[in-house]
Structures are given as structure tokens and as C-alpha cells.
Amino acid sequence: MEEILLEVNNLRTVFDTEYGTVKAVDDISFTLRKGEVLGLVGESGCGKSVTNLSLLRLIPEPPGRISGGRILFKGKDLLVGDEEEVRLVRGGSIAMIFQDPMTSLNPLLKISLQIAEALQLHRGMGRKEALAKAAELLKAIGIPDAEARANDYPHQFSGGMRQRVMIAMAISCNPDILIADEPTTALDVTIQAQILELIKSLSGENTMSVIMITHDLGVVAGICDTICVMYAGKIVEKASVDDLFAQPLHPYTKGLLDSIPRIDAGSRKRLYSIPGSPPNLASLPPGCPFRPRCDKAMEICGREMPPETSLGDAPRSVRCWLYASGEGGLE
């Protein structure tokens, strides 16, 4: 098995708001190995994006604050180093792409200059060398007619091409980890397929690890190795992609999988739907946050948050009283 690149232990991020302290990320732990593609899946407000921002200490402070845990990157805790050290890691060893490629690019700078700037900053390249490399990168990520288009401005590129440019900038410094936050949500499905293909091929070639943040279970099925399902700031289930889809354990995961319409579903069986709506993080019920929507809820669920229970092989774990020892248990 490949070496562990990133290890997140008991990370907690809170926001102080008018309505009290909101635990946006509450005690989450996961590991990322070299070359692994990890998916963080969940609905809006589940804390997946805050997790991602916490990894690079990009939480706006105040109102936010990382209140606990460790983030070990190659054995070094990113939460204790000073700002400058983290800045070098950010964009250098860990790169990020976001959902909206339009607002991530400077509209007044030529595409080639924006990529070259990153190269000059992080790899100390000269201007000429950086510009040449920028054109090369654009070609590598599949921009047709790359030399000519390098001198275009962002508005001359379509959404899909802009996301490619963002990826080119992100991989320009050969990062160890690429964090992709909903990279295809704003794109059409045929363009999404192009971008996912690109990310997959990049992680394969460069043995780059990827953290993929998305709400779309279909997207993770095709690209990820391991998946963490998040709900109300917690990771409720962790598993390899095959295990998760073949045998989901947590009632939330099960419910989600049963509630998405599938294009390959021959018979038109009625979709399952999870009752209620995702909870407000500012006023969580005691115990398991999924309990009000869960059809398997027991008495203990209302009292105590279930612990993380490991089952079977390494990544597999679940936070549900159904599987915690002593209570219920696996049937």
C-alpha cells in the first residue's frame, strides 16, 4: 500500500454567529494516500467545503476558527506552522480548484500570464520560461490550438475551458494533492465528462492524490477510490468506493443511494425519499443528527452521538448505533 500523504485527525472547525457557535466540521478524521482519489460527499451545509478550506487554513477568521485536531501533511502539522509556511504548501504542494471557474480567474489578465504567474511564484521560473511552460500546460490539458489561445482573456473561454485553465494552473507546480471543490457542478454533463476524464488521467500519470468534494454520488462512483459521506459536519460513513455502493451501511448513505434516479434503471420503480430536510447546524438535535429523518432510529440515537465503528478492511467505518458494539450490531 502506498504511503500516507495527508492525515486529518479529529478536525473541528466552528463559526461564531449571532445564533451561537456553529460546529461546521465536527471531529472528522481521514487519511489520503499517494495517488488516491478521495471523495467527500454530502448535501449543502454538511461541512464538506469547510473541511476543504480548513485543510489549507483558509477559514475566514473571525467568524470561523479551527478549534481542534491535527492536519499532518507528510508528517508535518499544518495547523501549528506559521502563516508563511502554509502559504508555500498552498498552491505548491497542495493545489485547489473551485466550482466557479469564472470568478477564480482575473478577467483583465491574459490566460498565459495567469498561469505563468503561478509558475514564477512557486517554481522560481523566469518570465520567458514560465510563458513557454504555460503554453505547454494548456496543450497538455486539451485546449485546442493552445499557442494561439494562450493570449486570450478569460471571457473568451467557455466554462469548460476555464475549468481546464484552473486545472492547468493547479497542476503547474506538480502538486502532491489536488483539492477539487465541486469542479463540475457548474458545467454541462458532456463537459463534466471531459473534465472528470482529465482529472482521472492526471492523477494516474502524475501519481497525484485528489480530494474530490461533491454532492453528486454519480461523479464519485466513476473517479474515486475511497469515499467519506458527510452529514451535519460529521463523517457518517467511510468506505472504498466499491464497498460503499455495493453495501452502504449508514441509513443516510442507503437513503441517498436509493433516492437518486439512475439512467440505467430499466424498471421505473418509485424512488425512495428520505423524509424531512437537512438540519440547521445552529440548532442540532441531541444525539445523532440524522435521527429525525432516520427510519431505523432507536432510543439511544436521541441521547448520544454514535462513535466511529471500524468494520472490515481499513477505510471502512460507520457512525451509527446499528453497528456500534453492544447495541444492535450487524445482522
Partner: peptide
């Protein structure tokens, strides 16, 4: 279009042949 729609089924998804369209609309 159909081949681009992801299917939440990893083994199936790995075996699918995807038609990747060139360029943009």
C-alpha cells in the same frame, strides 16, 4: 449525452465506454 451521465455504480462505471465530445457547444 447518455454516455456522459455518471452512473452511481462503480464496477459498471469503470466498464462503460464514454463518448467524449470534442469542444464546446
Amino acid at each position: 449525452l447518455l454516455s456522459a451521465v455518471p452512473i452511481p455504480d462503480p464496477p459498471k462505471e469503470r466498464l462503460r465506454k464514454r463518448i467524449i465530445l470534442k469542444g464546446d457547444v
